[in-house]
């Protein structure tokens, strides 16, 4: 019962939790930046006129999207050491995995963004003598990025929550830190409640900010 709860264990475990939170945030930010860069390249590949390139990108995205993230995490943790020949820590493995996995999801968002730009703009860009990369980087991508910014950020909030799955390979993120602290003080229940609270406050405030941003940056047509 609630009266038996002892939340005094939270104060001494805060530095420990903070380390976990730092890793979770770090993982989220790296996977977000890497995921958006690779995701944009994947989206361009999918929309390219080179059939083999488009097909390879489509396959990659569909494959990543149809298996559980947990399986992808386990796959990378198993296969990377086999390829590189030396074991990679759980934390580094998590960073590689999330970047590769999120790229597939970000690429679908960027593809929708690129496809929402009127075709005439590409033609106009080509007409004034821009080449493919110039059309993309000066005309199409800035608008696609702006239109999709709220959705990209929403995906990042999902990514932030999904990082808790590194639990499966034992990387020390926010959830794992709380679990270890709970074991150390023999108070797992309080630590789980506390960590759920942290996740909720962060995700709820972020999605609130995204909704405000959405209203602010919408391009008026």
């Amino acid at each position: 019962m609630l009266s038996n709860f002892d939340f005094s264990v939270i104060a001494p475990s805060l530095p420990f939790i903070w380390t976990g939170l730092k890793f979770t945030v770090q993982l989220t930010l790296i996977a977000m930046s890497g995921g958006i860069v690779f995701g944009t390249l994947l989206a361009l590949a999918r929309l390219s006129s080179m059939a083999p390139l488009a097909m390879a990108a489509t396959w990659y995205v569909n494959l990543m999207r149809s298996i559980p993230l947990l399986m992808v995490i386990l796959w990378f943790f198993l296969v990377i050491p086999l390829i590189t020949g030396k074991p990679l820590g759980a934390e580094a493995s998590a960073i590689v995995t999330f970047t590769a996995f999120e790229a597939a999801y970000y690429s679908e968002i960027m593809r929708a963004g690129i496809q929402s730009i009127p075709r005439g703009q590409v033609a106009a860009g080509e007409a004034i003598g821009l080449n493919y990369w110039q059309v993309m980087s000066y005309v199409v991508l800035p608008q696609a990025f702006r239109n999709m910014l709220p959705i990209l950020l929403t995906q990042t909030i999902i990514l932030f929550q999904d990082t808790s799955l590194v639990y499966a390979i034992g990387a020390k993120d926010l959830l794992k830190a709380a679990e270890i602290a709970g074991k150390n003080y023999n108070r797992p229940v309080e630590m789980y409640v506390f960590v759920a609270g942290i996740y909720f406050v962060i995700c709820f405030s972020l999605s609130f900010l995204v909704r405000r941003l959405q209203r602010k940056i919408a391009i008026v047509r």
């Binding site: 929550q161 808790s164 959830l175 960590v195 996740y199 995700c203 999605s207």
Partner: peptide
């Protein structure tokens, strides 16, 4: 929606 599934 705002708490990770694993934590839930």
């Amino acid at each position: 929606r705002n708490v990770p599934l694993l934590v839930q």
